[in-house]
């Protein structure tokens, strides 16, 4: 899976949770939960979905590395490549 495909999956899963927010209008370096107006349950749903789509662990200890859209993209790129 390449970078473009990985980001497409991320966009799709975020859209499922926050269909009213247009990803092109957000600040990709700001807090993901703030930008998409999602709570901790939504975030857990997002991580659950991404973990299943990419077949990676996404441990809770790594949450600080998933706090922005760009950080999440980088994290997925780093971990999803091996699959």
């Amino acid at each position: 899976m390449n970078t473009i495909e990985i980001e497409a999956v991320l966009k799709e899963e975020i859209h499922r949770i926050a269909p009213d927010i247009d990803v092109t209008t957000i600040d990709r370096d700001a807090n993901l939960q703030e930008e998409f107006d999602i709570d901790s349950m939504d975030f857990l749903h997002l991580v659950t979905a991404l973990s299943s789509r990419f077949n990676i662990d996404m441990p809770q200890a790594d949450y600080p590395r998933m706090m922005t859209y760009n950080a999440m993209t980088a994290y997925l790129n780093e971990h999803a490549w091996s699959h």
Binding site: S40, M41, L44, V47, T48, S51, S52, D57, M58, P59, Q60, A61
Partner: peptide, 10 residues
């Protein structure tokens, strides 16, 4: 810590 996302607590 050792749980997959689908089994995590809030």
């Amino acid at each position: 810590a050792n749980r997959p996302p689908a089994e995590r607590l809030l």
